[in-house]
């Protein structure tokens, strides 16, 4: 009986790994291998190893369009860091009060924000608003768009986590003479650390990988983000798969690093974030 079970789990392991390999690993390998081939060889789109490793592909991708990828990288980083920093700060405050207070105005605010979980952005009117405020095609404007679009999800995470923090702490601090903002800054915000790290990872990954919003709200060559650059290269490199894949790889590397460092945390965070929905 024991033996039979052992064999069965081994078969499970092997079948599972094989399926994983074919469905998930091969596309990735395919991209890595072809990014290192010489142009004509890469265009055959085969899975054979390169006859010669062309590391210069990566250099060439960097040099394309006057080092556009470096600008794009800078833009993506500023956008991600800026938006995530604002999101953490604003949403933690909002989630805190929404969870603690259940009166009518707060409930209404909550309902309004939560519609954003389902309803997509009204794109052209958003551009119109941004133009009216003179922030269209600017980095601050783009950051605000990302903040607005990720606010519902982020507040939801904070609101969910707040319910695990005992209310007595705040009351004690308040009686000791803290102002409401001090209570938040010195007592609550430090206690929110676990969910804050989840928020940072989840929002950073989605904002860094966002393609649609920069496409609409942040057009122009000097404004390109990593994802938009990749999209533009699709047209430009249509007959040079080696460069296209090298670009994909360069774009994926930051996320790969985050993945290797925070592997378990990301999975836990995803779970916490999605299940509470």
């Amino acid at each position: 009986m024991q033996k039979k079970r052992n064999i069965r789990t081994w078969i499970g392991d092997i079948v599972g790994l094989l399926v994983c390999f074919f469905i998930f690993v091969i596309p990735f390998l395919f991209m890595v291998i072809n990014s290192l081939k010489e142009r004509r060889e890469a265009n055959k789109l085969s899975l054979s190893l390169p006859t010669k490793f062309e590391w210069s592909n990566f250099v060439e991708v960097f040099q394309t369009n006057d080092y556009q990828i470096l600008t794009a990288f800078k833009n993506s980083i500023i956008l991600t860091v800026g938006a995530v920093a604002i999101l953490v700060f604003f949403s933690a405050m909002a989630g805190y009060v929404i969870q603690r207070r259940k009166d009518r105005p707060v409930k209404i605010a909550n309902t309004i924000i939560m519609t954003g979980l389902m309803i997509p952005a009204a794109i052209l009117p958003t551009i119109w608003v941004m133009q009216t405020l003179h922030i269209y095609k600017t980095m601050p404007g783009m950051i605000l768009v990302e903040v607005a679009l990720h606010t519902p999800f982020t507040i939801m995470l904070y609101r969910g986590f707040m319910s695990t923090i005992p209310i007595e702490l705040e009351e004690a601090a308040y009686i000791d003479g803290c102002t409401p903002f001090q209570v938040f800054r010195m007592i609550i915000f430090p206690l929110l650390k676990p969910v804050t790290s989840t928020v940072i990872i989840l929002d950073a990954v989605t904002i860094f990988n966002d393609f649609t919003n920069p496409l609409y709200f942040f057009p122009g060559n000097e404004n390109a983000t990593m994802q938009v650059t990749l999209y533009n290269y699709m047209g430009q490199f249509s007959s040079a798969y080696n460069l296209l894949f090298a670009d994909v790889l360069i774009i994926t590397i930051p996320m790969l690093i985050i993945f290797l460092i925070f592997n378990n945390k990301i999975v836990d965070g995803m779970v916490a974030g999605s299940v509470k929905g």
Binding site: R101, I112, A122, P125, L144, L149, T151, P152, P180
Partner: peptide
């Protein structure tokens, strides 16, 4: 304990402002 005082509405203002200007108003305008 005065809930309205500790959990001041001002905590909601930053999020609500950004969300209203960049999401709700465009939604209505659309």
């Amino acid at each position: 304990m005065d809930k309205k005082k500790i959990y001041s509405k001002w905590f909601l203002v930053p999020s609500m402002t950004v969300f209203t200007v960049m999401f709700v108003i465009p939604l209505i305008l659309s």
